Amino acid sequence: MGALDHLSNMFDCSGGSHHNHKNRKQLQTVEIKVKIDCEGCERKVRRSVEGMKGVTSINIEPKQHKLTVTGYVEPHKVVARVAHRTGKKVELWPYVPYDVVAHPYAQGVYDKKAPAGYVRYDQDPGGRHLERASSTEVRYTTAFSDENTGACAIM
């Protein structure tokens, strides 16, 4: 810290505490998957995060088993609090819209439990789950394509 920074902190007239801007939490939306069977479960989940510091809004979608918390909170703390207060299995929302994923029906990405229009989020489905086509397979599949019009004359 330079001398000017030190002097400006000493003579700060803002009246607030001297926190660095880096220490402030960012406003973010945390989506959580938690099993919600009935109105009692929904009430229990809502109460688990209502009193949490920094929470600005809570949205629960019981049919999708989804809890959305918006506020100045940290995701892992919200997950830990909901798990502790409800006693339920809780995880960050693992699903993304299927059109975001390159191969939505690849092994490990496609999930039957996912809500309609969603698949499980996977960092690298192409690297682990999908195999590359061999040169023989590529030759057979491109032999009858519209791009290779001279390859087949049986029309």
Results as ranks from 00 to 15, higher is better:
V45C: 07
D5G: 14
W93Y: 11
V45Q: 06
C152A: 13
H129Q: 14
M10P: 00
A102Q: 09
H18Q: 08
T141I: 10
V45K: 06
H21L: 12
E31R: 15
K77Y: 05
G71R: 01
V34Q: 10
F144K: 13
H76N: 10
G2K: 04
T68G: 00
H65S: 04
A106D: 00
G16R: 11
M52N: 01
D124C: 14
G127W: 11
P115N: 07
R47S: 13
G71I: 01
R132L: 12
A116P: 09
R139Y: 08
C38M: 04
Y121Q: 14
G51W: 05
S135D: 14
K33R: 15
E74D: 11
A106E: 01
Q123A: 15
V34T: 14
S145D: 09
V49K: 04
E42C: 12
A114S: 09
G40R: 05
E31F: 08
G117H: 03
T86S: 10
S48K: 02
E42N: 12
C152Y: 12
V82L: 07
D99Y: 14
G108K: 00
F11G: 02
Y95E: 05
S17M: 04
H129D: 06
I154G: 06
G126P: 03
D5C: 03
K113Y: 09
G117W: 03
G127Y: 12
V90C: 06
G71H: 02
H21D: 10
M1P: 03
K112C: 01
D111K: 02
Y110A: 02
V119F: 08
K53Q: 11
V73L: 02
H76M: 09
T142Q: 11
Y98P: 00
G87F: 07
M1A: 07
Q123L: 15
H76K: 12
S8V: 04
